[in-house]
Design a protein around this nucleic acid. Structure first.
Lengths: 181, 181
DNA sequence: TTGCCTGCGGGACAATATGCCGCAGCCTTC
DNA sequence: GAAGGCTGCGGCATATTGTCCCGCAGGCAA
């Protein structure tokens, strides 16, 4: 049986190198693309079994790659990975056809687990995993900001206006990482 | 044209009453269920256009209602609502067929927006959907704090713990008056 | 082309807010 | 009465914001 072929779309130099190596060691064949165009070329020329897409590719998101991927490769499973996770983008990604969504930081095992994981039904079905703590205010703020920012197609100035906060402040908040939980 | 029929599954007495009224005033017909069994009875006896499900129903989740709903009512749009939002449950809900996922606190407009949202051709042109301003981050924070504080029967220390903020900070926030909007 | 407007990123500095300490008073429960 | 939890509040040392101010880039109209 031949090796499974994974498409890795990730613009972070270091992270992509680490991931590539980790996946290769686990006996996968990995093709890496650092941006949307490179990714499209690969998608059109190769059959992939899986895809790992970093949500934030420089300017825009990698969500646009989902459709071409699905079209060329109806059987591949797609995992969206992001350092700036939010419920809004997660919902959007899944709606667009991604199979899973994972927040960085995550190690290779975690990522592979999320990518291969097919026993979806059990994930949340058990009542114990039902996380009963309310969101922290920071987390809630982050989610809300992401939602509004998304509604404004990434326009920071407009988002700041609607949120009644200074653009400079929003800008600074966005540069930080999302809150753990 | 007859009114659109909404199924509201929500175990919180107060919240469900408020929502029911708000939706009724907006000219929807609302059926309310406080638990899974009640909901199933309604699903089997009525045709719904939309459904709003609180994710946490006492012990388990309301995700199990998605399948029956979809089966009986292939056209309905389903919104999952929860005070304990997390990316994991959001992804799960969308995978199971929910159309959107929203974190409380959320007002009726926000909820309806999330429910009707999306490229639904017939609702896009709706002139009534006049520009919904998102809550400011301060307002959202205030609402959330009040809600959690309430769940904890006014216990400031416990609330601060859950919100992962310093008790002193919470105390100071509470001394100020609520934000205008 | 030249303004002009808008968005983006970021420096600098003062005004606030927050984290964290400690203390005293009040309850309720052993 | 001692123990432990909650509340209100006074200080700081830090962190985060509000403001103002530039420079740069792209879209657009004169």
């Amino acid at each position: 049986m031949s090796k499974k072929h994974i498409l890795l779309v990730e613009d972070d130099e270091v992270f992509s190198r680490v991931m590539s190596r980790a996946l290769t060691h686990r006996d996968y064949e990995v093709s890496h693309a650092a941006n949307e165009d490179e990714a499209l070329v690969l998608i059109n020329s190769t059959q992939f079994d899986y895809a790992i897409l970093d949500l934030n590719l420089g300017g825009h998101t990698s969500l646009g790659l989902i459709a071409p991927l699905k079209q060329k490769n109806p059987v591949s499973r797609i995992l969206i990975l992001t350092g700036y996770a939010s419920i809004t983008t997660a919902v959007e990604a899944i709606k667009l056809g991604a199979d899973n969504y994972l927040a960085k930081p995550a190690d290779a095992d975690e990522i592979l687990g999320a990518l291969l994981d097919n026993n979806q039904p059990d994930t949340v079905a058990d009542p114990d995993s039902a996380h009963l703590e309310p969101m922290s205010v920071r987390r809630l703020e982050w989610e809300h900001i992401q939602k509004v920012l998304n509604e404004n197609d990434g326009n920071i100035s407009e988002t700041a206006r609607q949120l009644k906060m200074h653009r400079r402040t929003l800008q600074r908040k966005l540069q930080k990482r999302p809150v753990a939980k």
